[in-house]
Computed example of a mutant assay.
Amino acid sequence: MDRQWPHDTVDVLGVRVSRVDVPKLRSFVEKAVKGRTKLTVTFANPDYVLKAQKDRELRDLMNGFDLNLPDGWGVVLAARIFGRPVPGRMANDDLTDDLFGQPAEHGWRVFLFGNAPGVAEAASENVQKWYPGLNIAGTLHGHWADDEGRLPAETAERLVAEINEASPDILHVGLGTPLQQRFVTDYRDRLTAPVVITCGAYFEHLAERREYYPAWVLKLRVGFLYRLAREPRRLWRRYTVELGSYLVRVLAHRIRHGKSPAA
Rank of each mutant, 00 (worst) to 15 (best):
S18C: 04
D8G: 13
P232Q: 10
Q102D: 13
L159F: 11
L191V: 02
N68Y: 05
R89M: 11
R109E: 12
W130S: 00
D98W: 09
Y246T: 05
P232F: 08
Y187Q: 02
F82Y: 15
G138I: 08
K259S: 14
V20I: 15
M1L: 11
V15K: 00
V76P: 10
R3S: 13
P194R: 04
E242T: 04
A262D: 15
Q181P: 01
L50V: 10
A44H: 01
R3Q: 11
V33R: 03
D71A: 11
R16M: 03
V17N: 01
F65S: 13
V86G: 02
V75D: 06
D60T: 11
A123P: 02
P261N: 09
G101C: 00
V222P: 04
C199A: 06
D66P: 06
L140T: 09
R209V: 06
D98N: 07
L220S: 14
A262P: 00
E30G: 10
L191I: 12
V184N: 02
R56Q: 13
G258M: 11
A122N: 06
V22A: 05
P261R: 13
T37A: 04
A78I: 05
A137C: 06
D11G: 00
A137Q: 05
V49Q: 04
Y48M: 14
F111E: 07
I81G: 00
L39C: 09
